[in-house]
Simulated scan of single mutants.
Amino acid sequence: MTQEEDRRTGRDESEDERADRMWGELIQEVRVAQTGVQILFGFLLTVVFTPKYAQLEHANQVLYLVTVVLGATATGALIGPVSLHRLVSGRSVKPQAVRWASRLTFVGLVLLLATMTSALLLVLRVATHDAYVPWLVAGVVTWYLLCWFVLPLWARHRYTTR
């Protein structure tokens, strides 16, 4: 195989170059997720200060608290890669930092899924009090699972040669 053919079928990059590229890609992905979780978390923090909060049933207040804690943990996991990068920058550990940041991002996405599920359940319970709420939430969660995990894993399995 010529060098030109090799370039078309793969990347000719060192471990450090690969880590730099992967870091840039990861940070772009984290920016999208961070924005969503931060807006949701910020909204959740305001709910407790509204008059409606005191009127919630105890079960819905507990669900609210669970949702806030999930939002806080998701925020922490999704901001973690930034802190990790800042604290290890210049220490020649970028490949390892990319792996840890990737794991934090994945955990953050799982926690974001849990936060959104919990928030949706809370909002729909308060808004409707209907028995179909768990079914509606299950449908939305299924959609998230398909978009966030099933499709990417299927594509990874289908289109990678490893």
Results as ranks from 00 to 15, higher is better:
L109W: 00
K52S: 13
A114H: 04
A33D: 09
V69F: 08
Y132K: 12
L112I: 02
L40K: 00
R91D: 13
P51G: 07
T117H: 02
G71K: 00
L26Y: 12
M22A: 14
V126R: 07
G36W: 03
G71V: 02
L65W: 15
K94D: 06
T46H: 07
A59Q: 15
I79K: 00
A119R: 00
T105A: 08
F41T: 05
L56D: 07
M116N: 09
L70H: 01
V126T: 08
V88I: 11
Y132V: 10
P134R: 04
F106W: 13
G71T: 01
L109T: 02
W135G: 13
L124N: 09
Y132Q: 15
G71N: 02
I27Q: 08
Y132F: 12
L84G: 02
A101H: 01
H85N: 10
V98C: 07
T105S: 11
M22R: 15
I27L: 14
H85M: 06
T73M: 11
E25L: 15
A101D: 04
D130M: 12
G42D: 05
V133R: 00
L122P: 04
L45W: 08
V69H: 05
K94F: 09
F43A: 07
V30M: 08
V37I: 15
A101E: 02
S89Y: 14
G24Q: 10
V133A: 06
A54C: 13
G36M: 01
F49Q: 14
R99Y: 08
V110R: 00
V69A: 13
E29M: 07
L120Y: 08
T73F: 10
G42C: 03
F49W: 14
V107F: 09
L70T: 04
P95N: 03
P95Y: 04
V82Q: 10
V48C: 11
L111D: 02
G24V: 10
Q28L: 15
H58G: 11
V30I: 13
L121Q: 05
V98T: 05
L56G: 05
V66S: 05
F106E: 11
T67F: 03
V69S: 06
L26G: 08
I39F: 10
W135V: 10
L44C: 02
S89N: 14
M22Y: 15
A74F: 00
S92R: 13
L120T: 07
H129R: 14
T67Q: 04
V88A: 11
L40D: 02
G90Y: 04
T35F: 12
G90I: 01
H129G: 13
L122F: 07
S102V: 11
L112N: 03
L26N: 06
Y64C: 04
Q28C: 12
M22H: 15
P51R: 04
P51Q: 06
V66R: 01
L40R: 00
V126K: 08
L113E: 09
R91M: 14
R125W: 10
Y53S: 09
L120P: 04
R86M: 12
L56N: 03
A127Y: 13
V62M: 14
I79Y: 08
W23P: 05
R103G: 10
A77I: 04
T35H: 11
Y64F: 11
V37S: 03
M116R: 01
